[in-house]
Nucleic acid binder design. Structure first.
Lengths: 217, 217
DNA sequence: TTAAAAAATAGGTAAAATCCTGATTCTCAA
DNA sequence: TTGAGAATCAGGATTTTACCTATTTTTTAA
């Protein structure tokens, strides 16, 4: 395959060591070449706006400072819908995976993917337009199953806000003040959540919020 | 540098993509060669016990299933004190860093290290016997400062146990039962921790425990 | 051995959390 | 317009937390 016909790739990852290593790996694939690397979404935007080089595929890390993976993906989906974005991440939780797919990622894999599988994934993305590993596929199926037990998505907006505030040292009365609601309403949210999530006290709320990425620590 | 005089390296990481990429990167350093890769501590032990090849340096990932980085490091320090272990990790919290250094790691760096710095680190480890980045060094200095505010280490054993149990849905009375102590003693632990950590309620305990890796979620 | 320090325990009280049941108010569609 | 359902709010009771001060027991060091 001549250089002119190689598929082009951009790597967006703030982990320099990983990005450079990945670049070398891809260099060993005759079908692909790395067009450029960026450390975050802002750098990527700069590169793309320069205009003279738009990659076929972007390998996008999820955890970046400045402009993280999700924001970058939203921007790409809107401005450069033609670029196929593959999300690279350490997180394998359902919530994160589904969020990225909904945002338009053409593929999602964990960083512990086997090098051979990466090559296969790149080829398949160029061929079919998407690549999802068995793990991610099963996650999607599971999420679509009716009655799958973990549905942290059906929280109402106020419940979600309350849940986040409940993970602080505020009393319920203080939370009520912040949310401009009666303490009794807050008490209602609390009870509703206890029932819905099958927990017994406020510590349970915190644990749940953490497990489901409702709050960050 | 002839092949016979290259410094030898082993990579222990369950992230195949990362390990393979890293191998390729190191391959581009004329002074070093990768002797073998292992996916976890157990595999590493197998390789080392085979006996015919002992590396100069081991690049050790911290987060592995089966036998994790810390266990592996303890074992290495005892059985193969001659091997220089460099810990590769995603965690940059003081607690983790210090723990590894105390366990005998000859270096500690985050996976976002620059490739050039990696090479420099490898050379320096062979030369001086250790390599610590500015970040890690400053962490050590900070930890040794008297009165540095974050000292999650000075928790007494019972306080620590209580703290872990307080991060569950148990009442303090139930915790007292489990720990075979009077509820009043538990109340004492609680109050002591509130003062020590400058927090106001049980949620504060949970947050603190999480931030300081006292519990896992 | 003994005094001092640390750990464990107690009593009492106020505040917050938890758990009911029921009453308004609001929203939205028929 | 109106009625059903959701959201909000209230009263009131019990349990758990949180906060004092003080005593007993255990451990440690001189």
């Amino acid at each position: 395959m001549t250089n002119a016909h190689k598929h082009t790739i951009a790597i967006v990852d703030d982990h320099l060591l990983f990005a450079s290593s990945l670049e070398k790996l891809i260099h060993s694939f005759p079908e692909f070449e790395v067009l450029f690397k960026a450390r975050n979404g802002v750098e990527l935007q700069r590169e793309l706006k320069a205009g003279d080089h738009v990659p076929d595929i972007i390998l996008l890390d999820l955890n970046m400072p400045v402009m993280n993976g999700q924001e970058t993906l939203s921007w790409l989906t809107e401005i450069h819908p033609g670029i196929k974005v593959l999300v690279l991440s350490m997180e394998d939780d359902e919530r994160t995976i589904l969020k990225m797919i909904r945002e338009g990622a053409k593929g999602y894999f964990l960083k512990d993917i086997h090098p051979n599988d990466l090559k296969e994934a790149l080829l398949e993305v160029m061929d079919k337009g998407y690549y999802y590993s068995a793990k991610v596929t099963s996650t999607m199926v599971h999420a679509l199953q009716p009655g799958s037990k973990s549905q942290p998505l059906n929280l109402k907006e106020n419940e979600r806000t309350f849940l986040q505030l409940a993970c602080s040292e505020m009393t319920y009365k203080e939370i009520a003040d912040v949310m401009n609601l009666s303490p009794k309403t807050i008490d209602g949210y609390r009870q509703e959540l206890f029932n819905k999530l099958n927990i017994k006290n406020r510590v349970g709320l915190v644990i749940y919020a953490l497990k489901n990425n409702i709050i960050e620590i």
